[in-house]
Each structure stands twice: as C-alpha cells, then as structure tokens.
C-alpha cells in the first residue's frame, strides 16, 4: 500500500518533469526568442512575481490576485443565475411533459450555438460590462444544468413517489421537496459539474474582449500585446489551476452530500 503510493508519487513527478524538460529543451533549441515563447524556468519566476504583486508587473496593471478575483466574480455572477434558472426550469420541465414539450424546440435551437458566438450580441446589448460576461457564462452553463436536472427529475422511479403518497405526502409541493428533488440530486450535480467547466471556459472567452480592466482572460490578451509570453503562460496556468480547484470542490461536495449513492455501482 505504502509502496504503491510512493510509486504513484514518483510517476506523477516524472510525468510533469519530463514535460517541462521537453518544453525547456524545445525553447532553447528551436525558439530562443523571449518575445514569442518562454521556457518553463522563466514562466515559474514570472508566475511567482505576478502572484506576490511584484512592482515590475503591478505598475502595468498585472496583479494576479486581483485578476483572479474579477474572474471569479464573473464566474459566480453568471453561474449562480444559470443554477437558479437551469434548476427551476429543469425541475418544471422534468415534472411536466407539457412544459418539456413546450421548452424543447427553443432549447434545441439555442443549445448548439457555442456560447462564444453569443459574445458579439452580448456586447452590443449589454456593452462592455460585467453583466455581458455573466451573460456568456450563463449561456454556457445553463444548458448542462437544465438538461441534467430535467433528466434527473423525469427518471425518478415511480415507486418512490407512490411510497411517499401512501405515507401521506399527497401534495405536489411536498412530493417535489421530499422526493423529486433529493432523488434527482445526483443528476443535478452532474449538470453542475459539467456546467461549471463550461462556465469557467466562458469566463476566459468573455474577458478576452475586455469587458473589464481586470480578469484572467483579459490579461492573457493584454500580455500578448506586450509580447510577454511568460505572462501569457502564467495566466494560462492560473486559469487551469482555478478550473481544477473548482472541479475538485464540486466533486468533494457531491461525494459528501450524496454518500447514499456509494455502493450503487458495486451492487
């Protein structure tokens, strides 16, 4: 058991180490131009300087903590609205076939449009504002949440509803609260996780267009104009790390809240 873990640890670092070594070598052999690419050794230094707010970057407005804050703000703004609307509509559409039929054409029409394609209309309609960014994020996240919730609700086994009714729960509101919602939580969480991933991608895409003076996506674009690939890659790294943390956060919550599911797969 212990040995296994040591081995896994070793493989983990060997994998990353090899990747960085190849990248470093590629730079020094083929590129050797700090204005179009940076080696990992340089990126690491820049990353740390950006995080601690080194004046060298702070003077030009590159403050990683502040940029993260703005990006998280955009994410939460758009994502919370997506949860609210995706969950409510999913619940209603999953419960009522009529509503589902009514919503279906619109959903199927809008869903295949990539969220990024909405950026121009969002900017025209909402100008370069936080709300425009939130709108793009909303568009990206709402469909996974809506469709998964809908699926979860419509596939709640009839026997649970019947059992609840024979135990006295005959009102629709109580059935929703005590049976339909808890039973469809696994599907909802699935949608939440997928939706969050899309939302985070949309944050970057929306910010690229300069909806605000801060934000990870905006700074990536700005750093390109300054020909600072080390800054670009540092910001890419930050985006990846936050995306990973968000995903872990949802997985952790899911495992804690839905521990009743454990063993279903094994059975």
């Amino acid at each position: 058991m212990r040995l296994e873990r040591v081995k896994d640890f070793f493989i983990f670092f060997a994998s990353i180490g090899l990747f960085l070594a190849l990248w470093e070598a590629y730079y020094w052999i083929f590129v050797k131009n700090p204005f179009i690419l940076s080696p990992p050794s340089k990126v690491l230094v820049t990353f740390v300087q950006l995080v601690i707010g080194d004046p060298k970057f702070a003077e030009t407005g590159f403050s990683m903590p502040l940029d993260m804050l703005y990006s998280l703000y955009h994410y939460l703004y758009g994502f919370s609205i997506a949860i609210l609307i995706g969950f409510s509509l999913g619940l209603i559409a999953g419960w009522s076939k009529k509503v589902e039929k009514f919503l279906y054409p619109v959903i199927e029409l809008i869903r295949p449009i990539p969220p990024i394609a909405w950026i121009p209309i969002a900017i025209l309609l909402l100008k370069l504002t936080h709300t425009a960014a939130a709108f793009i994020i909303f568009i990206g996240a709402v469909f996974p949440i809506l469709l998964n919730t809908m699926y979860g609700v419509s596939s709640v086994e009839k026997k649970y509803v019947e059992a609840a009714m024979t135990l006295g729960a005959t009102k629709t509101a109580i059935l929703l609260k005590k049976v339909i919602i808890p039973a469809s939580m696994p599907a909802f969480f699935n949608g939440l996780r997928v939706g969050s991933g899309v939302a985070w991608m949309c944050v970057v895409a929306a910010e690229l267009f300069g909806v605000s003076q801060y934000g990870l996506g905006y700074k990536i674009q700005l750093a390109r104009l300054y020909h600072s690939p080390d800054v670009v890659i540092s910001y890419m790294l930050a985006i990846g790390i936050i995306g990973l943390i968000l995903d872990r956060l949802y997985r952790g919550t899911e495992n804690r809240l839905l521990k009743w599911r454990r063993g279903f797969v094994v059975e």
Binding site: Y160, A164, T166, L167, G168, T170, P182, A183, W260
Partner: peptide, 21 residues
C-alpha cells in the same frame, strides 16, 4: 379518490428512499 393519510402501505419491494438512512 387517491392516497391519503388515513392509509399507509408497505410495499412488496420495500420502496425505501435510498437518499435517506
């Protein structure tokens, strides 16, 4: 007319709520 609080039923396949202990 439908189920009511005056009757409770034990199901042949239990129908326990898996999300509740």
């Amino acid at each position: 007319k439908g189920p009511g609080q005056d009757r409770a039923m034990v199901f042949q396949d239990y129908a326990l709520f898996p999300w509740r202990n």
